[in-house]
């Protein structure tokens, strides 16, 4: 276990009823379409992944992942086309390179690398979307909430509380 990220059990928190929040970045052509297919096929899966569409997994800036984690996500799922199938030829390979590097970085930052996951899911693999999200939800339940308390993160505080930033509308605090 890392120094900065403690499992929920260690912190004495109950993981029961813990609903991990996953930010999912899905590429438009394969994985986003696959999750549409999962919907059309009425496959039921954990509601924990919230989906952000990008045109290509190659658009994924590793900072998106870091920002998502800092802003309260317990995990990040990245979905792209299978190797060789990228709509833009090789954006998914670029994503893979960044992902491998990012995972090392996460470990150094004390965040379990399992919190970030890359999956190749083609447009016809609606069931893979279900499996990936279900598996990841279960895995995050076991890991517990991501607690970044000991990392100085002014933005995290700023985002999670309805503090008004200069000229910038802030969402009403949710529940």
């Amino acid at each position: 276990m890392s120094e900065t990220s403690h499992s929920a059990a260690e912190l004495g928190a109950s993981t029961e009823g813990f609903q991990p929040r996953i930010v999912a970045f899905f590429c438009n052509w394969c994985t986003y379409t696959a999750s549409d297919l999962a919907g059309v096929s009425r496959l039921q899966y954990a509601p924990n992944a919230r989906i952000i569409r990008v045109m290509c997994s190659g658009r994924l800036d590793p900072q998106f992942v870091l920002v998502a984690l800092r802003q309260g996500a317990d995990g990040v799922l990245i979905g792209g086309c299978h190797p060789g199938d990228c709509h833009y030829q090789e954006g998914n390979y670029k994503c893979l390179r960044r992902y491998e590097l990012l995972r090392r970085l996460l470990g150094q930052m004390g965040i379990e690398p399992q919190r970030v996951r890359l999956e190749w899911i083609s447009a016809s693999e609606g069931d893979r979307v279900r499996e990936a999200i279900n598996e990841m939800t279960e895995q995050l339940r076991r890991l517990g909430p991501l607690r970044l308390a000991s990392i100085p993160t002014p933005h995290r505080h700023e985002v999670l509380s309805p503090v008004k930033r200069a000229g910038r509308p802030v969402l009403a605090k949710a529940e």
Binding site: V54, C56, R59, H87, K94
Partner: peptide
């Protein structure tokens, strides 16, 4: 419009219409 260059730009100079860094950060938030 894949945005691979945008993700790689170290200075944030490259941007993609409809998928700017700012728009995606907003969406994450």
């Amino acid at each position: 419009g894949c945005g691979t260059c945008v993700a790689a730009c170290p200075s944030g100079a490259a941007q993609q219409h409809l998928f700017t860094d700012a728009q995606i950060y907003d969406e994450i938030e």
